[in-house]
């Protein structure tokens, strides 16, 4: 029976999924099903029954011309994927989201460790500034190295599923099922979003509270703030990736046919590729050359805000055109 269903899915794959076409497909499917069960009752083998049913399907072009259905040229060229491929893609995307989330978490934690260790060691009497900074810098480099390793590893794992993001066609039953799963996942996504934003908004409290305990304690406040930011970033990335994987397969929102042709992603992506490494370079430069580790991290939130403003403004301007 599955063979007949997937045969029909393939036959209808290039046609637009309008209510009329889907209705027609449903009718033909139940027709074929009935024929199949009757053949089986007559004592035909599984293969014989399927063979007869499929040979009596006819020619899809006949329906296309008769119904005046305009074939979706672009969609017709996209490969049809199986359930196994979709499940594998979704699970690799999920773990990829977690891995990238952990990687980014480690990067932020790395900067926090630097501040934590250097301010903890500063108080040791007779210690030189360089000696106080060294363990923190080593911790930073080690953590960043681990994070980079995770990024490369997860990117490598994902390589073989890249084609899934270039536009694929889902068999109808899978599309319906995925839509349900997407709808079920949405509340989880928004919950994570709310928790993440909540943590971000409340995180500066750690600064005020720590400043009550004196100037030195303020540094620990920064560390706690950065840890909280890292937690919320992890939430955004991990749940955002899962949602994105559904949106891509279902061609929703940013991944719909209309949005796909917009160029803005490329421009924003290109700017991001310059701005973020630049911010990191400034951070490392200020730290190593001027020893401003305790304040240089401010580069990242500033870049974040400016970059957010830029991409929002860019989207609005290009939208008008």
């Amino acid at each position: 029976m599955e063979t007949i269903k997937s045969y029909l899915d393939n036959m209808f794959a290039g046609l637009p999924k309008t209510a009329r076409v889907l209705d027609l497909k449903g009718n033909i499917l139940s027709n074929m099903e009935e024929k199949y069960y009757e053949l089986k009752n007559q004592g035909k083998s599984e293969n014989e029954a399927i063979g007869i049913v499929i040979s009596e399907f006819g020619n899809i072009d006949e329906l296309v011309t008769e119904l005046g259905i305009r074939q979706d040229e672009q969609a017709a060229n996209e490969p049809v994927v199986t359930r196994e491929e979709v499940e594998a893609y979704l699970s690799i995307k999920k773990s990829m989201g977690q891995q990238i989330g952990i990687g980014v978490f480690l990067c932020i934690l790395a900067a926090a460790m630097l501040i934590l260790l250097s301010s903890a060691l500063e108080v040791i009497p007779g210690i030189s500034e360089a000696a106080a900074d060294a363990p923190g810098i080593i911790a930073l480099l080690v953590l960043v190295t681990i994070a980079v390793g995770i990024f490369i590893y997860s990117g490598m794992k994902f390589e073989q599923y890249k084609y899934m993001e270039k536009g694929v066609q889902l068999p109808t039953y899978l599309e319906v099922e995925l839509k349900q799963r997407y709808d079920q996942y949405n509340p989880v996504f928004y919950l994570h979003l709310i928790i993440g934003v909540g943590i971000l908004i409340l995180s500066p409290i750690s600064l005020f509270v720590s400043s009550l305990f004196g100037d030195r304690a303020e540094n620990y406040g920064v560390v706690i703030l950065m840890f909280l930011v890292a937690c919320s970033v992890y939430l955004f990335i991990s749940s955002g990736t899962v949602r994105e994987s559904y949106s891509r397969l279902l061609k929703l929102g940013d991944y719909s046919e209309q949005e796909k042709h917009k160029k803005e992603d490329k421009v924003i992506g290109a700017v991001a590729a310059i701005v973020w490494p630049l911010a990191t370079a400034v951070f490392l430069f200020c730290g190593f050359v001027y020893g401003l580790w305790h304040i240089a991290w401010i580069v990242f939130p500033i870049t974040g805000i400016l970059f957010g403003m830029f991409s929002a403004a860019y989207s609005i301007i290009t939208d008008k055109n």
């Binding site: 027609l24 033909i28 027709n31 009596e56 006819g58 020619n59 899809i60 329906l63 008769e66």
Partner: peptide, 14 residues
């Protein structure tokens, strides 16, 4: 004579 599915449903539509 066996009428194919596509023939049958094209005819219904017409």
């Amino acid at each position: 004579y066996i009428m194919k599915e596509t023939t049958l449903y094209s005819a219904f539509d017409r």
